[in-house]
Design a binder for these strands. Sequence first.
RNA 1: GGUCGCGUGGCCGAGUGGCUAGGCACAGCUCUGCAAAAGCUGCUACUGCGGUUCGAAUCCGCACGCGACCUCCA
Length: 500
Amino acid sequence: MSVPTHGPLFLTNTLTRKKEEFVPLRPPHVGLYVCGPTVYSDVHLGNVRSFLTFDVLYRWLTHIGYNVRYVRNITDVGHLVGDVDEGEDKIAKRARLEQLEPMEIVQKYTNGFHDVMRLFNVLPPSIEPTATGHLIEQIGMVERILKSGYGYEANGSVYFDVSKYAEKHAYGELSGRKIDELMTNTRDTEGMDEKRSPLDFAIWKKAEPQHLMKWPSPWGEGFPGWHLECSAMSTKYLGLTFDIHGGGMDLKFPHHECEIAQSVAADGVAPVRYWMHGNMLTVNGRKMAKSEGNGFTPEELLSGNHKLLEQGYSAMTVRFFMLQSHYASTLDFSNAAMQAAEKGLERLMAALTTLDALTPVATFDPAHDTTLDALIKSANAYMNDDLNTPRAIAVLFEGIPVINNAAAKREDRSGFSAEQLSRWREFYHGIAGDVLGLQHEQRVVANDRALDGLVQEFIRMRAEAKARKDFAASDAIRDKLVAFGIVLKDTKEGTTWERA
RNA sequence: GGUCGCGUGGCCGAGUGGCUAGGCACAGCUCUGCAAAAGCUGCUACUGCGGUUCGAAUCCGCACGCGACCUCCA
């Protein structure tokens, strides 16, 4: 099988700020690394968007025939509260506040993160390494950086020497920053005399005696710097140079810039061939962020129990909503937009159900083949064009009238042959399901069968009433059911029901 | 202040130098006992002002407005 099977894939490489054809280092293998969460609190919707973006990338790469090793880390140490390497560790702080062991915090929020990912139908990565599980690798990397002369030890901590690095390498190339501008704009450096320059960053940090999260190292007890883990773990699992590194736009600087510098300093090669950055989810035009206090958790979203939410929205509605915009654009969350997405998704999923329920006819429409060929072609082209999911979704909608038409009309030639049906189903389930990860909501849970049996009985009674033209009785049944949130739909095949 | 980006129809949101995404909403019609659902039809936008061009919403300049990053953040 040739790779890729769906034509060349183009991705926007934020390193060059251009759309480039994606050619992996060692096809059919693709190495993909995505910065995962720091597990010190609940993930919010903005975080979800980022993981969703790379979920679709992972799904698409797989769909077009690549063998993807997807590494997404869990940051469970080293991420400090403040800036300039002086604050408290985020997890340690949370542990103190919640009066738990740091690892209990890590476990708690890792579990929560996994639950949320499952809820949004985000696939698990191939490897989900933790920073604390890779202390050896990180210490090794610090040693290599020291050996190459780009790090220095000060009072039990080790810092990366940005100025020295910038003499020979392009520090700032990813984020478009110039070193002297960075120097000018940096805030006061008082109280940080361990660092030679405010731009330097910790790759190993000395731990105070009371510090809970610390490990022995050649420089004494301490813990690794935040940026280091991604470099160490991506190197370990994907090699010195790998294909794609993804993350949120806000990680571009300094996090990813530091990753590049560390890898080049330690191993002499640029670590990443294609950098990809997802854009931010905004609320009323402002970035959703924990510090802004405008984020909501998936639980609040589902229940609608938040001052910014007019109602609850399902995870699939959110997924669909997010995929209706391009990953590189900011996306503004609003109730009106969510309600529109809810309706749109409903229509799409209803069409899928209709398609699955269609029965083949003898006098089918031969045009369904050419129509489908066109849909397939453009859907693939759009996905290959830097993951244009909104366009791919639009393609799915283009075929919906064809499906609905076939279902609504029994007499004409709008029907499908058995072969056409299987091809259409394969396409719709492939794009909507496998690639975009949209799935039916499980709206009714435990007593689904009991409820269905009950409603079917009412439908039967109503049909009897209609048969004897007792419309008062039939309407009464329908209205009663509506009051209970059950909506009846009359079709040529009979009456179906769904929840309002 | 520096760097980067954005400004599209009632709303959300794609996009290309000429071939008028899609969703939601709205209106009319068809189907239906009625309604819902479904189908058909309609709704032609691109912040402002200049410029390049046969032709620009799409390229360039300026202005205005908004945002992101520059400090932890997906």
